[in-house]
Amino acid sequence: MTGALRRLVAPLSLVAAAAGLGVLAFAPGHAGATAGVATGATATASPPAALPGSLLAANATRTHSSSNLQLGQTLFQESCSSCHGTDAQGSALAPNLRGLGAATVDLWVSSGWMPLANPAAQPVVKPDRFTRAQTVAIADWVGSLAGGMAIPHPNLAGASVSEGMSVFALNCAPCHTITGAGDALSNGITAPSLHSETATMINEAVRTGPGNMPRFGPGTLSQKQVLDVVAYVRRYIQHPTSGGNDLGGIGPVAEGFIGLFVGVGLCVLAAFWIGDRTPRDLDEHAHGSDVPHGPGTTEHA
């Protein structure tokens, strides 16, 4: 019990101190006000949305490397440490991040998957709460703790989309579908759509294997093949070209829907327009009639 208490209290005090220091360092003008808010925020493990605006604005302008690491540490301890621990060592709630590398952290944060409500379930995409610089700072700080894959900067200049398509069809299409539209796998797991991922995210996902996705290490796909497949996804999967509206790339399901309801539907409407709508005056002896005919059939005094 005391151990648990100590585990809880120690990081909290560390977070509070670090947060206060960070705020003092980056935003001296607002130090007094923001430090108090920030401490309160970490102590109750609020989501990062509770971060004061002035802190975010001040941090975004920082570019220097060591300051960036400091910024990353601050942001991590603000937003991530309540589950992952102050030094990214993990907790009962969330895994140890040390040694996973900056690329993994960058992918999970920039995709909007974090924070996870349930680490075992399919991540729900939430709006991105950090600027690109802040995400990179967090990822670099975690990467600086125990190494791992750095954030890649895929240079697609010499990439071959033809090679990329082959790699995609063999390795990616079995889950993400050949059009990259994504689809539901079994037991609530989903292969997400690739239609809006950045080159960096695709590269990171291939190399680090987030969630249920296999990790394609250098022994499986060469760096050239990764760049090829990134180029193919960026240039073709994300920009389907010919033939008009692609209906989300989900193939015959959408096509059948359009064919039946628009194609056949429009033709049936045309028939309805050309043809006669209702049979003329059904024979009264055949079906009877409750409609009064002729003038003055009913009269009320």
């Binding site: 692609d246 194609g263 429009l266």
Partner: peptide
């Protein structure tokens, strides 16, 4: 109707 669909809506993009 077939011309409209053929011109505006992609069907069976075999090149993908």
């Amino acid at each position: 109707v077939t011309v409209l669909l053929g011109a505006l809506v992609q069907i069976n993009p075999i090149w993908q």
